[in-house]
């Protein structure tokens, strides 16, 4: 999803230090390395994907973000990125706190479970929604903590972090989310992108 990469890149200042948590096959890292900063690291749980990253010349550590972020000292990076994986963690609250400890800022993207298609799927079919960004069945999904854009905004108040930028992505169109349009963005946004700070 190149649009997502571009949005993330636009948020990041040039030559800052970046950690991509759950960096997958390193495509976002590659994109940022070429366009923003060579000072970029990744952490990835899959051995296979770590190998892919190494083959791309990226500096990646095999590890589990839920446990292995603790090895990084406070404020190790200017930006820590968590792309579409918050929902897969056992304890998302802890992960966010760790992201904000390790990074001065964090960029979190979430597949929006409040999207109208998802809602309709459950309403009409009465089965767990399966969409392009959420392709798994309920019994084999790694996504155990799905949330909506609205949930995430609320979450910031509950656990106490500041949202500096919130964007919704819909059909490659990007728009700002604010209090007055939250209802609609939560209904039509496929992806929420948030820049957060402690």
């Amino acid at each position: 999803m190149k649009t997502e990469y571009k949005i993330i890149a636009d948020i990041i200042e040039k030559n800052s230090s970046i950690l991509d948590v759950g960096c997958d096959d390193g495509s976002l890292m590659e994109f940022l390395k070429t366009n923003k900063s060579t000072n970029i690291r990744g952490i990835e749980i899959s051995k296979e994907k770590v190998q892919t990253c190494i083959a791309k010349g990226l500096t990646v550590i095999e590890g589990n973000a839920e446990f292995d972020l603790k090895q990084f000292p406070n404020d190790s990076f200017d930006y820590v990125i968590l792309g579409q994986t918050l929902q897969a963690f056992i304890n998302p609250e802890l992960v966010i706190k760790e992201l904000l400890r390790v990074g001065k800022k964090a960029i979190i993207t979430i597949p929006n479970f409040g999207h109208w298609k998802v809602r309709l799927d459950l309403l009409i079919k009465g089965t767990m929604p399966i969409t392009n960004s959420l392709p798994h069945n309920w019994y084999n999904t790694p996504n155990i903590h799905m949330c909506t854009i609205k949930d995430f905004v609320k979450f910031s108040e509950i656990i106490g972090f500041k949202i500096f930028k919130s964007l919704a992505l819909k059909n490659k169109n990007i728009s700002n989310i604010n209090n007055s349009n939250l209802f609609f963005k939560n209904l039509f946004g496929e992806l929420g992108i948030f820049l957060i700070e402690k």
């Binding site: 090895q71 990084f72 000292p73 190790s76």
Partner: peptide
Amino acid sequence: NAIKANVGFVEIE
């Protein structure tokens, strides 16, 4: 990592 050195790591099966 504690000194922000450039380090990659993999455990091979």
